[in-house]
């Protein structure tokens, strides 16, 4: 059983060592940002990749996590750790609510995607209008470095914190995939009627998945807040984050535990490289994103990890490849 956790241990260990090899602030910023996206994408992957329910509105969970945490700290002076826990809980609750409304109505496929997008947009417009979120001016978290405030002087420390969250998310997802719940979730993705005939409570399984998914993505929102110390409606509930988490999971390999992490690094790595070489052209990194997505959809529907596994199996055709990642 422990063997299935080895790839997670290896990749987490590798990333943990980065601050020892690289000290450039730009590089560390890059890794922290990618880790935050990866955590959000793990949430998307559980619902969309493993469960086959494609959400286009994970911003709803990301933003709720971030806003709840920010409001509790700024308006009520709550401790940052407790605020983060509350943010994750409320993110999960919002996810359950959206799931309850849309899954109970039997929405699937593009209908589900559109409804989640609509929920996120409604939240964005509300957050822009009501006073408690600071409206269009946003919320600024006071700079007050200290472990209790979840703010660190060194970027390396924050990197390890984010990595710890990512690692916890990876272990949770691996554990789910090997459990009864995971098997039922995959069954729901593959064929709902067949799953129902085998005694799977489809609605309950979907609700469980979207709740855990929302919690993970909300955690990413909380980390974002603690790192950048600023929030407005377009950051928290903007379409950008919904697309980021979806792309990372798709590009890395949807349904695979390590997919979102690999995808986030691939996407942003390529985007940043393109910017380095053609920095003069604004938006060139976004063009690179688009290209990568088209290539993945056309030639590697299993994502980067799926492609690697396929090449590996082909090369070592004689011996069975450890295809699970």
């Amino acid at each position: 059983m422990m063997r299935t956790y080895l790839p997670i241990l290896a990749i987490v260990g590798l990333i943990a060592a980065i601050p020892f090899a690289v000290t450039s602030n730009t590089a560390l910023n890059f890794v922290v940002f990618v880790l935050i996206i990866a955590l959000g994408a793990q949430g998307w992957n559980l619902l969309g990749g493993v469960g086959g329910q494609f959400s286009f509105g994970h911003a709803a969970f990301f933003g709720t996590g971030a806003y709840v945490s920010a409001i509790l700290q700024v308006r009520y002076g709550l401790n940052a750790w407790i605020a983060m826990a509350a943010g994750i809980l409320l993110g999960a609750a919002v996810a359950w609510g959206i799931g309850f409304l849309s899954f109970r109505a039997g929405l699937r496929g593009s209908y589900f995607a559109l409804v989640t997008l609509a929920f996120a947009e409604v939240l964005r417009i509300l957050a822009n209008a009501v006073p408690i979120t600071g409206g269009a001016a946003g919320l600024l978290l006071k700079l007050d470095i200290g472990v209790l405030n979840l703010q660190f002087a060194s970027r390396a420390a924050f990197l390890w914190l984010a990595l710890g969250c990512v690692a916890a998310g990876l272990v949770l997802c691996r554990w789910i995939m090997d459990s009864r719940f995971g098997a039922q979730l995959v069954a729901v993705r593959e064929n709902e009627d067949a799953a129902r005939a085998l005694g799977v409570d489809v609605l309950a399984v979907k609700l469980k998945a979207i709740t855990v998914s929302g919690a993970l993505t909300a955690a990413a929102g909380c980390l974002y807040l603690q790192y950048f110390l600023y929030l407005d409606a377009n950051i928290a509930y903007g379409v950008w984050i919904s697309i980021e988490v979806l792309l990372a999971a798709m590009v890395g390999g949807r349904g695979l535990v390590l997919g979102p992490l690999v995808g986030a690094f691939t996407l942003h790595g390529l985007g940043d490289l393109t910017k380095q070489f053609a920095g003069g052209i604004p938006g060139i990194d976004l063009a690179a994103y688009g290209t990568v997505l088209i290539l993945v959809v056309a030639f590697a529907p299993g994502g980067v990890l799926g492609l690697l596994t396929r090449l590996w199996t082909r090369r070592a055709a004689a011996q069975p490849a450890g295809g699970r990642a």
């Binding site: 995959v186 069954a187 064929n191 009627d193 067949a194």
Partner: peptide
């Protein structure tokens, strides 16, 4: 009409 979980 058989309904296998085709991906598994």
């Amino acid at each position: 009409i058989v309904q296998p979980f085709a991906g598994l």
